[in-house]
Structure formats: structure tokens, C-alpha cells
Nucleic acid binder design. Structure first.
Lengths: 106, 106
DNA sequence: TTCGTATTTAACCATATGGTAAATTACAGC
DNA sequence: GCTGTAATTTACCATATGGTTAAATACGAA
């Protein structure tokens, strides 16, 4: 999952404020430039960012569409978890009602 | 992340319907029992489930509280992404206005 | 005590992930 | 063409993850 690594989430957060070069993204990250390049490739393959060329710099920018998808994904997940919690809570309440009959716990 | 693996999410979904033994959780999963045991340990360490004893069975059940936390987490994440997208959209619109002045694209 | 079922442990393996250092490429300016 | 800066590629390494099989453990029932 492209969003799994904190360094990558950090880069995306930084890019939310606007275009940045590899060096700029690396600066707060306490890791070598090759490592940053690798993370950028992950983000690029996931189409979360795009890159361009400016002399010897290779600036990165956020891709708008997939992040909207990510946002929608979070919203969906939230709904899924909510419905699971609903079912769970019903289950737990029915257990409370039953509690006197046969307590399996030791 | 305990919620990362589809098998584990499947187990949690199953447990949302009520207690289940290791064998019952394994049945739909096309993997060996030892593999299932490992996944269960991950879930147990993350305190998403708890286990008990019933003869030779070791039934599992969902832990309520942390899943509520997970739900809250999703909600938070959603808000974070939304605010990022707001910022991003403002940025993109300001670029549109600028578009005529200096087109870096080739 | 022995047998069958449920589960775990131990030992092992393949692959993915995240990092490094050193060499290489790309480019601007002198 | 040479030099300095930005970034990437290459080769390598350590650890995490997810799986396997075979053996061990736990328990109820015969």
C-alpha cells in the first residue's frame, strides 16, 4: 500500500503545499537520497504524484484525482466499520441479557 | 498494521457475527492452520480479539473498544484527507488563473 | 491408556520492504 | 571540456511478512 509508510505520507503532506524537488522532500526525512527516490517511485507507480524536469531538478507534484479516490475510500471504510460495530453492539447487548443463564468465563 | 492483511480483515468480519474457533476461521481462507494461528496472534497482540478455552477448542471473539477506536481513526483520517484536498484544490485553481503567464510544460 | 480431533510450536523458506554506499547520469555555468 | 550540484542506478544487506511441513501439545471419549 502506497500510503503505508510514514515517510511517504510525509511527502504527500509536503506536496499538498505545492511542488517540491527530491532534495526538498528528503531534507526533513533523515534518510539518503536513494531511499527517497525509491519512495517516490512507489508514489509514482500508485499515480499519487507526477514528476517533471527543470534543469537537473526533478520536481514532484500531487495528482489530484487519486487522492479524491482515497478520500472516498476512507469514507467507505468508515461506513463498513460502523456497520460492523452496529452488529457487534447488538450481539454484545444480547449477551448481556443472557448473562445469567450460563457464564462460560472462569 | 494488524488490519493490513485481507485474511485478518476477513477473520474480523466473521467474528463480527459472533465467536468462532480457529478451524471455523480457517475454513474459508485457503491456508494452513499454523498460518491462521499466526494471524490470530497478530490480532491478539493488537488487542482486536480475545481468546478462551473450551475443551480442545480455542474460540476467538472481537474486542469491542479498539474497533471503536479504529472507527474514530478512519473518521479522523477522512477529515485529514479532506482538508488536504481543500488545500490542493485551492492551489490548483490558483495555477489555472496563472496558466497564461509562464507555461513550464513542454 | 490409547485414540482422534483441535490447535500450537518449531524449523524452515521465499519474497517484499526499506535502507545503505558507490558509481553513473543529467545539467548549468565557467 | 571541466566542475559542481541534483538525482538516479546498481549492488548489496537486514529485517519483516506470510507461508509451509512435521512434530508436539491439549483435551474428551472409548
Amino acid at each position: 500500500m502506497a500510503l503505508a509508510h510514514p515517510a511517504r505520507r510525509g511527502m504527500l503532506a509536503r506536496l499538498g503545499k505545492g511542488e517540491a524537488t527530491v532534495g526538498e522532500l528528503a531534507q526533513p526525512l533523515d534518510m539518503s537520497l536513494p531511499a527517497v527516490t525509491k519512495h517516490l517511485k512507489v508514489l509514482e507507480r500508485a499515480m499519487l504524484i507526477s514528476r517533471s524536469k527543470n534543469a537537473q531538478w526533478r520536481p514532484c507534484q500531487l495528482e489530484e484525482a487519486p487522492l479524491k479516490t482515497a478520500s472516498r475510500w476512507f469514507e467507505q471504510q468508515r461506513k463498513v466499520w460502523e456497520s460492523r460495530l452496529d452488529r457487534l453492539e447488538k450481539h454484545l447487548h444480547s449477551m448481556e441479557k443472557d448473562a445469567g443463564s450460563s457464564r462460560g468465563r472462569e
